[in-house]
Design a protein around this nucleic acid. Structure first.
Lengths: 339, 339
DNA sequence: CGGCCAGTTGAATCCCGCC
DNA sequence: CGGCGGGATTCAACTGGCC
C-alpha cells in the first residue's frame, strides 16, 4: 500500500492477556468468551511488539491530516495508548463507550465491566488540520456539543452475524451505530477508511452506508467471506441525507464587506450592541466608525469589551422597526445566495 | 514505612499538561488552568520513571490482600496502566468517572473531555482475597450491580476549598463522593488507607467520615496546612448510619439524532407535519432539510409555524402505510431501551 | 422565602492562513 | 518559521442580587 493514502484508520486489535480459566455463570453454564487462537499473546512484551508493528504500519499509510481510532478494554488499551504516544501520535480524545446492556459480573467480585475505551489520535502534536465535524456531532446530540462518553447498546439481535450453527460469528462484533458515529465525526464523504482488523466488516458496512470508501484487512478466511456477504447487502443511505452540517470553520468565508457590496447592508447604517449601549456607523469599505475610532466589526467589538478579540458577527446588531437583529443573519442570507 | 502495612492506596499522580497558550472562553474570559511547577515532566521517559518509582514504593507498603486505585486522564493514564501491569499489578476494573458538569470544549475542535479514568488493581493475578463490598455497592446503586461507569459531579460549591484570596486552593480537588465510593467499595472500617499525593486531603476526609484510618503524603506545605485544617473539621458519620440511597436520576435526555444512529429512523426518511402541508428529509446527523433550509427538528418546526420555539417531537410525523405517527413515539421507545 | 436573571467557573494537551 | 490578525467558539452547576 502506498504511503499516506488513507484518511482514517479504525482498529479493534486482538488481545488475550488476562483470561485465566473458564468463566461460568452462577448456574454453572459456560460463558462463551473470547478465546480464539488469533487472540493469544504470551507476554506483555509480545503484545507491545505486535502493537508497535501494526501501529507503525498504520502510521505509514495514514495521511498527515488523517486520524486514527483504536478501541479496546482495560486488558490492552493502556498498552496501546502508551505505544501510540511513544510513536508520536497525539491523543485528541479518549472516548468511553458506555454499554447499555453489558454482560454482568456473575461472580460479584468486581464492578460490572460496562464500557470500552476508544482512543482518537492525530499523527502529531503539530498537525491541527484533521477532520472533525463538530457541528454534525452537535446536531446529533440535539444541539449540545458531543461529550467523550457515548451511550450505545452492544451489538445484538438481527445486526449480530451468526455462523452456520446459529452461534455468533465473531466474539467482539461492534455495533454499526458506534462505527457510524466514528466515521461521521472524523471523515467526509468519499474519504478512504482503513480497518486493519476488519473482522466481519462493521467498519465497511458503516462506510458504505455513509458514502465513504474503505479498505479492510482480515486474516481469517471465515470472517472475510462473512464480511463480503454482509457488505454486498448493505444499502447506502440516500446521498442527500448523508450530508452533515458543516462547521463554520470549513464553510467558505463571508467577509463583512461583502454585505455592503451586495446591498444587504446600506453604507451609513447604524449598528448596535445587544443592549444599545454602543452605536457604530457602517462605512462603504466594511469598516465601522464607533466612538471616534474605526476598525473591523471584530476589532470594534473587541475594543468595546476591552478584550483581545471578539466575534463581531454576534456582537453587532441592526435595527428593524425597533428590534435588534444580529448581522450574522445577513451573512447566512448571503451564504445561501452564493451556494 | 514498614512493608505491607496498608490496606488500600488511592493515588492521583501529577502530570504535565504541556499547555500551549492561554485558553479563553468564547466570551474571551480566561480559563484558570493548571500550571503548577510540580506538575511538569520533560518527556514520557521521565514520566514513566517517576511512575515506576512511586508505584514500586506503593507496592512495597501494600498488604498482599490490599488493592490500589489510580485516577488520571488520557494524558497520563495509559502510561500509568502500562507500568502497573509491568510491575505485576493485576487490573480488576477500569472505572470511568462521567462528570455531570465538565468544562466544555470551547473551540469546537474535539469532543468535550467529560470523564476521567480510575484503575483498580490488586497486587497480583493470584491474589483473590481482596476486599470488595459487592452488596454495599449494589445497595448504593438501587439494588442493581454497580457498573464500571460512575456518574458524579465535579467538586464545586462549598466543598471546593478556597485559598486566602477566594481562589480555588487546589487545581484538581476531587469530590468527596468519589472517594467515599472508592473507600466504601474496597475497604472495611478500621482499614489503613494511604494517599501518596494527598493534596488538600479529600482521601483523608472521606476516610474519616467512613471510619477508616489514613496516611497522607504531600510535598507542598500549603496543601498540608489546608488539609490539616480541613480534616480537623470533618465529622465522622454515625457508625450505625448507612449511606442514603441516591434518588433516581431524572429521565435521560434523548437527542433526536440518536433515533437515526440507532436505526429507529432511516436517513432519507420523509417527515410530515400533522396535516401533510410540509415535508422534510432526515439527514444522517439528525438535521432536517425542509423547503431548502436545514436545521434541527425543533428549528424547522418553529420556522414553519413562524414562532420562537416549537416542540418538534410532536410536530413532525413519519408515514406508516399512509398513517402519520409522531416521531415522539420513537423517542419513548429508545428511552425504554436505554434504561 | 422563593423565583428569576445575570454572572462566574471548572485537569484543557482548544485556530489558521497569510506574509 | 514566527508574527500578526481575522474570526470561530461553551455546558452545567452554583452564587448572589433583586423583586
Amino acid at each position: 500500500m502506498p504511503e499516506k493514502c488513507v484518511d482514517l484508520i479504525f482498529a479493534d486489535p486482538p488481545y488475550n492477556l488476562q483470561l485465566g480459566g473458564e468463566l461460568t455463570r452462577p448456574d454453572q453454564s459456560r460463558v462463551d468468551g473470547v478465546d480464539a487462537d488469533w487472540d493469544r499473546f504470551a507476554s506483555f512484551d509480545d503484545y507491545d511488539l505486535f502493537t508497535h508493528d501494526w501501529l507503525a504500519a498504520c502510521r505509514r499509510v495514514l495521511k498527515d491530516t488523517g486520524t486514527l481510532w483504536v478501541i479496546g478494554s482495560y486488558h490492552n488499551i493502556f498498552r496501546v495508548g502508551t505505544v501510540l504516544q511513544d510513536q508520536g501520535f497525539w491523543i485528541l480524545n479518549d472516548i468511553t463507550w458506555r454499554k447499555t446492556n453489558p454482560m454482568p459480573n456473575f461472580r460479584g467480585t468486581r464492578f460490572a465491566n460496562a464500557h470500552e475505551t476508544l482512543i482518537w489520535a492525530s499523527k502529531s502534536q503539530d498537525q491541527k488540520t484533521y477532520t472533525f465535524n463538530y457541528e454534525a456531532m452537535k446536531a446529533l446530540n440535539d444541539g449540545v456539543q458531543m461529550r467523550s462518553d457515548w451511550v450505545l447498546p452492544i451489538c445484538t439481535g438481527a445486526e449480530r452475524l451468526k455462523d452456520g450453527h446459529g452461534e455468533k460469528a465473531h466474539p467482539t462484533q461492534k455495533p454499526e451505530a458506534l462505527l457510524r458515529r466514528v466515521l461521521m465525526s472524523s471523515t467526509n464523504p468519499g474519504d478512504v477508511v482503513l480497518d486493519p482488523f476488519f473482522g466481519t466488516g462493521t467498519t465497511g458496512a458503516a462506510a458504505k452506508q455513509l458514502g465513504r470508501r474503505f479498505i479492510g484487512i482480515e486474516r481469517e478466511e471465515t470472517y472475510v467471506r462473512l464480511a463480503e456477504a454482509r457488505l454486498a447487502k448493505v444499502i447506502p443511505f440516500d446521498p442527500a441525507a448523508r450530508e452533515v452540517t458543516r462547521s463554520k470553520r470549513q464553510e467558505p468565508r463571508i467577509p463583512f464587506g461583502w454585505l455592503i457590496e451586495r446591498g444587504l447592508l446600506e453604507p451609513g447604517t447604524m449598528l448596535f450592541d445587544p443592549k444599545r449601549r454602543w452605536a457604530a456607523k457602517v462605512r462603504v469599505d466594511g469598516t465601522l466608525v464607533c466612538d471616534g475610532t474605526t476598525g473591523s466589526i471584530h476589532r470594534t467589538a473587541a475594543q468595546i469589551q476591552g478584550l483581545d478579540a471578539c466575534n463581531g458577527w454576534t456582537f453587532w446588531h441592526f435595527d428593524v422597526e425597533g428590534r435588534l437583529i444580529p448581522i450574522d443573519v445577513l451573512r447566512q442570507q448571503l451564504r445561501a445566495e452564493l451556494n
